[in-house]
Amino acid sequence: MALDKTEGEAGGGHKGAPFALAFGGGGIGSPFLRGLWRYTPIFLLALLWEGATRLGLVSHLTLPPLDRVFAAWWGLFSSGDLIRNAAVSLSRTAAGLALAVLCGTLLGVFMASSKWVRTTFDPLVQAIYPMPKSALIPILVLWLGFGSASKIVLIFLGCMLPVTLSAFNGARGTEEVLVWSGRSLGASKARVLLEIVLPSALPEILSGIRIALAFAFVLLVASELIAARAGLGYMIGWLGDGGVYDAMFAVVLTVALLGFAADRAFLLLMRRFLRWRG
């Protein structure tokens, strides 16, 4: 009996790369080394960056050398500016995303299970889904001010619909026999929704949240760039206006790294939640 099947497809797109296959097949190196190996193209890009700027191929005003960016990063880090603003940004992202996950999941599952809810909300979802949420930034700032509230609401609005749609599709895809089994084992309709429809929609809900997570960072930086008094996006705008390009690049790289780390962490969480899928 195959008690230990291989991991699912969640691993990402690099699996088919021939060099990765060759490396993995040879059985050399720890998983950590193999992990590093996968990101070789990024190291190459960094080398190219450093080389091009050192050799004077690119003006330092356009692209500061990487080592200066690192030095600026260290400066921002040790002064506490980076951490303070990152904390503001991350708490905004977390709050907006958490609200979106909660409301989106509830709405999606209820839309799937009740015709009444579906007919009420479907036109709204259809209309709002394709709208670029960044267009709302000035309005939200007008209503809620320059502080965190406008950012949290924007992230909430932008992230809720992908979660809603995935929860809706996941819940609709629940196998009828699972619902019937639950009912004939004595579960009430409400219990079936909570204990059977929700977990069986979980894989789709989690992929929806992963998409929402990426949206969250986009909306965070956009809104902080346009109108804010704190946050990483605010720092990028402020440093850029002041012409401190090496520091600006340092913050941009930090945002990229945070987004990447959040996605990886979420993937790990997702695999943990979906261990039951052999």
Partner: peptide, 11 residues
Amino acid sequence: IVFQHFALFPW
């Protein structure tokens, strides 16, 4: 009830 395709809760 017992179904043809088991209908166990996979999670």
